Computed example of a mutant assay.
Amino acid sequence: MTDSRELPQDPDGLTRADTEPSFQLLVLESRDIKGFLTELAVRAASRLSVPGNTIHSGVTVLRHRRPEAVAASDAAAKALDELQNGFGDGPCLTALRNRSTLLVPDLSAEKRWQPYVRTALEHGVCSILAVPLDLAGEAEAVLNLYSGRSNGFSTEDIDTVEVFASQAASSLRLILRITQLSEAREDLSAAMQSRTVIDMAIGAIMAQNRCSRDTAFSILTTASSSRNVKLREVAVSVITSISGEEKISTHFSE
C-alpha cells in the first residue's frame, strides 16, 4: 500500500530511512527476540494512539503451524491476539497466511470470520489492521493492531505501520541469524567436548586393560547400552573413577 516513489512519513515526519537506525539500535538493546517484538508492539501502539482512539498492538508468530501470541503492547492486546488464535481464523491470521496487509475498517460490517467477529465486537474491537513481517523464510509473524473505533486506522496509519514492519523485519532477521549462529556454535562446542571426553575414556580403558582402541570403545558402548546411559556420561564416570576428579575439563571447555 506504499508508493515506492516516495518514502512514507510517520506522524512525526520521519521517513523510512530515519526509522532504520532506531530498530538497529533496538537489536543491540534487546535481550531476546521476545523483548524486541514487545518493544515493536509498544512503539506501534504508541505511535498510532491518539486521544479518543487507543490502539492495542500484538505480534503473533506461527510455530509448528500453530499461531502463538508472543508479544503485546499491553494485556488487552495479548488477550485479543489469543482470542483470534483460539478461533484459528481472523483478519490477522489471514494476513499472515496471505503475507499481505489487511485492513478491516468496520468489524460490524465484516462478513468473513463470523464466529470470531461476533466475539471481537463483544470485546469492544471495531477495526483491525494486520501487517505481516517479511522474515524471508526464517519464521512467520504478523503485527496486529486493534482499535475500539470504526475506521480507526487512516491511510497514513497504514503507511506508518508498514514502515515499522519493514524495518522491524529486517532487524528481526538479523536477530534470528545471530541466534542461529550462537546455537550452532554451542552445539559444536558441546559435540567437541563430548568427543574429547569419550576419547579420554577410551585411552584410560586401553591403558587399564591393555587392549586395542576398538575393544576399548566396545567396552564403553556396551556399558552405555546395558545401563541405558548416554555414552558421554559413561565416559565421564570412567575418567572420574580413575582420576578422582568430579569435573572433567577439556580443551573446548569455556
Rank of each mutant, 00 (worst) to 15 (best):
residue 137 G to C: 05
residue 139 A to I: 07
residue 140 E to H: 00
residue 140 E to L: 03
residue 141 A to Q: 04
residue 142 V to E: 00
residue 142 V to F: 00
residue 142 V to K: 01
residue 142 V to C: 04
residue 143 L to R: 02
residue 144 N to S: 04
residue 144 N to A: 07
residue 145 L to R: 03
residue 146 Y to C: 02
residue 147 S to N: 06
residue 147 S to D: 05
residue 148 G to H: 08
residue 148 G to P: 09
residue 149 R to E: 08
residue 150 S to W: 04
residue 150 S to A: 14
residue 150 S to N: 06
residue 151 N to G: 15
residue 151 N to Q: 14
residue 151 N to C: 10
residue 151 N to P: 13
residue 152 G to H: 00
residue 153 F to E: 10
residue 153 F to H: 05
residue 153 F to P: 03
residue 154 S to F: 05
residue 154 S to E: 12
residue 155 T to N: 15
residue 155 T to W: 07
residue 155 T to R: 14
residue 158 I to A: 12
residue 158 I to Q: 11
residue 159 D to F: 14
residue 159 D to V: 10
residue 160 T to F: 01
residue 161 V to Q: 07
residue 161 V to Y: 08
residue 161 V to W: 06
residue 161 V to I: 15
residue 163 V to L: 10
residue 163 V to H: 05
residue 163 V to A: 09
residue 163 V to K: 01
residue 163 V to G: 01
residue 163 V to P: 00
residue 164 F to L: 08
residue 164 F to G: 02
residue 164 F to C: 07
residue 164 F to V: 13
residue 165 A to F: 05
residue 165 A to I: 05
residue 166 S to G: 13
residue 167 Q to M: 13
residue 167 Q to C: 08
residue 167 Q to D: 10
residue 167 Q to R: 13
residue 167 Q to T: 14
residue 168 A to G: 13
residue 168 A to V: 14
residue 169 A to L: 05
residue 169 A to Y: 00
